[in-house]
């Protein structure tokens, strides 16, 4: 917080860094030399990167295509006709994954935030709640997702309780929400703890209650601080929604599996895999963008 007083470089300084601002004296010989050197260096590293990437790609291509098993692998994993046939049903399955992702993602944010707030409550009165939240996080962060899926997906309906749904879609979403909320709660907690105590002191000194302070002052800053980490978890969630297939929900993975069982050709898996990648790419780019913006905000003016 002590650094808050530091002023951002003004427009004059920014202009001198980018060069060519009106009213700026013409660059000196020294500066021109430095710019030429930097441009040379930058061209050279781009060249090196391009060539090495190309060489690696060619070598990888040759090694794979010249391997003794390649023709067989090509027909079982990369068959265009099988892929085309399987595509529509896989795409329909992916729609289910997308629903799990969106509904589950929303639930994860709410539940995770709630648990994180519970974990940061102070005072002996809240000890049971705090303990409960800590126990929850320990349990579901430690339990492999696949086991949670089995326990929730097969265990809950086996109780035969009134009102417990037995749709693999609902149960699968529930299991994923349970696990991911534990992770996301920890991310939120880190965010809450990253807000300097002086912010809380300032809010309380204005007469805001603990609850108001948390809601109006701490959480907005906490969420902003951890948005890149949250988006990363969202990308992870995007592929883990494919795991609901183990409960029998006909999602993209399951649809591919059914096709594989019929044709003994693995191409549908590759198709499903690529579709998941395509789904993940936009959010990965958004995550990168948000992280870069956060970095710029924190260290404007630095060259490192």
């Amino acid at each position: 917080m002590a650094l808050r007083g530091r002023r951002r470089p003004g427009p004059e300084l920014t202009a001198s860094l980018t060069g060519g601002a009106p009213g700026l004296p013409a660059p000196s010989e020294l500066e021109l030399g430095r710019r030429a050197y930097r441009a040379r260096r930058s061209r050279r590293s781009t060249g090196v990167a391009l060539v090495s990437t190309l060489v690696f790609a060619v070598v990888a291509y040759l090694v794979v295509t010249r391997s003794p098993g390649w023709p067989r692998v090509q027909t079982t994993f990369f068959s265009l006709s099988v892929g085309r046939d399987a595509f529509p049903s896989i795409l329909r399955g992916l729609w289910l994954n997308l629903q799990v992702l969106l509904i589950g993602g929303a639930c994860v944010v709410v539940l995770g935030l709630g648990i994180a707030v519970l974990r940061t409550l102070r005072g002996p009165a809240f000890a049971p709640l705090r303990l409960l939240a800590t126990g929850y996080v320990d349990l579901f962060r430690g339990m492999p997702l696949i086991i949670t899926l089995y326990l929730v997906g097969f265990g809950l309906p086996a109780l035969r309780l009134q009102g417990v749904p037995n749709s693999p879609f609902v149960l699968g979403t529930l299991a994923i929400v349970l696990t991911y909320s534990a992770y996301v709660a920890e991310v939120f907690r880190a965010g809450i703890e990253s807000v300097h105590p002086s912010q809380r002191a300032a809010a309380r000194s204005l007469g805001l209650t603990h609850r108001q302070t948390t809601r109006i002052v701490v959480l907005p800053q906490a969420v902003r601080n951890v948005t890149p980490a949250l988006l990363n978890d969202f990308v992870a969630l995007q592929k883990d929604v494919g795991l609901i297939s183990v409960l029998g929900a006909v999602d993209a993975v399951r649809a591919a599996q059914i096709y594989v069982g019929q044709t003994f050709n693995f191409t549908p898996y590759v198709v499903a895999g690529l579709l998941f990648v395509l789904l993940a790419v936009p959010s990965a780019r958004i995550a990168d963008g948000v992280a870069a913006r956060a970095r710029r905000r924190q260290q404007s003016g630095s060259v490192l």
């Binding site: 917080m1 808050r4 007083g5 002086s198 912010q199 809010a203 000194s205 204005l206 800053q221 902003r224």
Partner: peptide, 11 residues
């Protein structure tokens, strides 16, 4: 109360 480090709410 006014603090040494201002403690304005940055958001």
């Amino acid at each position: 109360v006014v603090f040494q480090a201002y403690n304005l709410f940055p958001h």
